[in-house]
């Protein structure tokens, strides 16, 4: 028996909008730790890891570890039927091939349940060890989204370089090239507007902008984004999901042929 009640149902709606462009089908795993997902895009270039900790739910019952295969476009269709202020409850019986999404309006005057078929998905699960990153950049998520969008009108790839001067996003294309430098800026009115750069050593890596733009679909989840970089490792682009977890996007770099 599985029963997860999330008072801030809009978080789940935003999570689905953040990942459904990157991943088509995925297994949602439920355990005592929480509700999680790990999936790669169809090209195996990017990976998304979601964790919503059990403590973040108002009610969390998961009698045994359960993996539920879902088409994310179909989940998104279901969740779009929930109001932004609705409480969302996920229910599944042991051995069932369906999951039920229950939506309750805040004043309890409307209760809806949507049942969705589950599917069998063969997914490859990767072990991702904790890594020491050469540079970690924390910046406003809207600023990062704007930079990725702007650069993708010029080129297909972005070079992200971190030095003691700041973090530089560069691209080049047929019409020209572009460089955007963000310096560390902690003298702002609100902490979420700060750009904070922790650098152990300079790093410069090249990534496909198409994927970066896809990651920025998570922008509504968090005011800030954290970008962790190490030479010849995938970049990690992390958005916090309130105080209950995170979405992490991993993207493999491009290297010289």
């Amino acid at each position: 028996m599985l029963e997860l009640r999330l008072v801030q149902g809009s978080l789940l709606k935003k999570v689905l909008e953040a990942i459904k462009e990157l991943v088509t089908d995925a297994n949602f795993d439920c355990s005592a730790t929480g509700f999680s997902l790990q999936a790669m895009d169809s090209s195996h270039v990017a990976l998304v890891a979601l964790l919503l900790r059990s403590e973040g739910f108002e009610h969390y019952r998961c009698d045994r570890n359960l993996s539920m295969g879902m088409n994310l476009n179909n989940v998104s269709k279901m969740l779009r039927c929930a109001g932004n202020d609705d409480i969302i409850t996920l229910k599944a019986d042991d051995g069932s091939d369906t999951v039920t999404f229950m939506f309750e309006s805040p004043n309890q005057d409307k209760i809806a349940d949507f049942e969705m078929k589950l599917m069998d998905i063969d997914s490859e699960h990767l072990g991702i060890p904790e890594a020491e990153y050469h540079a970690i950049v924390k910046m406003p998520s809207a600023e990062f989204a704007r930079i990725c969008k702007d650069l993708s009108s010029i080129g297909d790839t972005v070079v992200i370089s971190v030095t003691k001067e700041g973090v530089k996003f560069s691209t080049r294309g047929d019409i020209g090239n572009a460089n955007i430098v963000c310096r560390q800026n902690t003298t702002v009115d609100k902490p979420e507007e700060a750009t904070i750069i922790e650098m152990q050593e300079p790093v410069s890596l090249t990534f496909a902008l198409r994927y970066m733009n896809s990651f920025t679909k998570a922008t509504p989840l968090s005011n800030t984004v954290t970008i962790s970089l190490s030479s010849e490792l995938p970049v990690v682009v992390e958005y916090k999901v309130a105080d209950m977890g995170y979405i992490r996007f991993y993207l493999a770099p491009k290297i010289e042929d």
Binding site: V45, P234, E256
Partner: peptide, 14 residues
């Protein structure tokens, strides 16, 4: 030319 690496070349399959 830049070669696109794949994510599975960095991490072990579990």
């Amino acid at each position: 030319w830049k070669l696109q690496k794949r994510i599975i070349s960095f991490y072990e399959l579990e």
